[in-house]
Amino acid sequence: MGLEAVVNEIREKGRKEVEATRAETRAEVEEILKDAQARAAELKASADEEAGRAATHITNQEVSAANLVVKRQVLNAQKMLLDQVYSASLAAVGDLPAEFQEKALTDLLKRAAKEIKKGVVHTNKRDIPVVEEILSRLKTLSGYTVGDPVDIPGGVIVESNDGALQIDYSYGTFLGEVWESGLKDASDILFA
């Protein structure tokens, strides 16, 4: 066997080893790439899932916040409407006919006289003549005098002569009491 044959044999053997090493390296590279792609797919799926959860959470928070804003606006509108109803009711009570006003004022003064025997009666400017007439007509109210007018829609505020006791029988006070006790029922009827 000649030198050339030995060189060719060594070359051939080297080439085969290089090819085997390359094939082995390619297989390892393909395996590494395959593992990397699988890991990348897992990470992407995990990231997509986490992003989906985060998006759902953010969406839910935004929807909840929007619902709260809407609920607050609805409650504010309802309160504004109830305030308008209250003001209209107070104005309507103050605008009742003169006969009603006289009877109501007479009853309120008689009721006050049971608690305060002598005192000063305050009423709105419109009702002062009516109160003066009632006080002059009823002997049981002879201990009362008419005081300065007050800013009330109707009714009376009676104060003892010494100022120690005051009874508020104004229409606003009565309506306020009725309003507080019936507010939930009125709200349920109006906004149910």
Results as ranks from 00 to 15, higher is better:
Ala112Ile: 05
Arg126Lys: 15
Asn8Met: 08
Ala36Trp: 10
Glu28Pro: 00
Ala27Ser: 12
Met1Ala: 15
His122Met: 09
Val85Asn: 01
Glu31His: 09
Phe174Pro: 00
Pro149Tyr: 13
Asp185Asn: 05
Leu183Arg: 03
Gly94Ala: 12
Tyr169Val: 03
Phe191Gly: 01
Gln84Asp: 09
Phe100Asn: 04
Glu50Tyr: 10
Asn161Thr: 14
Glu115Arg: 03
Ile128Ala: 04
Glu159Asp: 08
Leu141Asn: 04
Ala23Glu: 11
Val6Asn: 13
Glu115Asn: 12
Val130Ile: 13
Ala186Asp: 00
Ile128Arg: 02
Thr21Tyr: 06
Glu115His: 05
Val121Arg: 00
Pro153Leu: 07
Leu190Met: 04
Ala88Asn: 06
Lys103Asp: 14
Arg26Thr: 00
Glu177Arg: 00
Gly172Asn: 02
Gly52Leu: 05
Ser170Met: 03
Arg111Met: 15
Asp107Met: 12
Thr59Glu: 11
Glu28Trp: 00
Ile58Val: 14
Ala192His: 05
Glu12Ser: 15
Glu9Met: 11
Asn67Thr: 06
Val156Cys: 03
Leu165Thr: 10
Ala113Asp: 10
Ala55Phe: 13
Thr173Glu: 08
Ile134Gln: 05
Gln84Thr: 12
Ile116Ser: 07
Ala54Phe: 09
Lys44Val: 06
Lys118Val: 05
Lys118Thr: 12
Val121Trp: 01
Asp162Met: 01
Asn67Trp: 09
Arg11Lys: 14
Leu183Gly: 06
Ile32Phe: 12
Gly163Ala: 08
Glu12Asp: 11
Lys16Pro: 02
Asp35Phe: 14
Ala104Tyr: 13
Thr145Met: 06
Val146Arg: 02
Asp48Ala: 09
Ile32Thr: 13
Val150His: 01
Val69Tyr: 10
Val156Ser: 06
Lys110Asn: 11
Arg15Asp: 15
Glu49Thr: 11
Ala40Phe: 11
Leu3Pro: 03
Leu68Trp: 11
Ala45Asn: 10
Val18Cys: 02
Asp151Ala: 15
Ala77Trp: 08
Gly147His: 03
Lys34Asp: 12
Pro149Thr: 05
Lys184Ala: 12
Glu24Asp: 00
Glu17Lys: 06
Arg126Ile: 15
Arg72Thr: 15
Ser160Phe: 09
Asp95Ala: 14
Asn76Arg: 14
Gly14Phe: 11
Asp162Ala: 08
Glu17Ile: 05
Pro97Tyr: 07
Lys114Trp: 08
Ala47Val: 13
Arg53His: 04
Lys117Phe: 12
Val18Arg: 15
Glu133Met: 04
Gln61Ser: 10
His57Cys: 14
Thr106Met: 06
Ala104Glu: 02
Leu138Trp: 06
Gly155Ile: 04
Thr59Pro: 02
Asp95Gly: 11
Glu102Thr: 15
Leu175Glu: 01
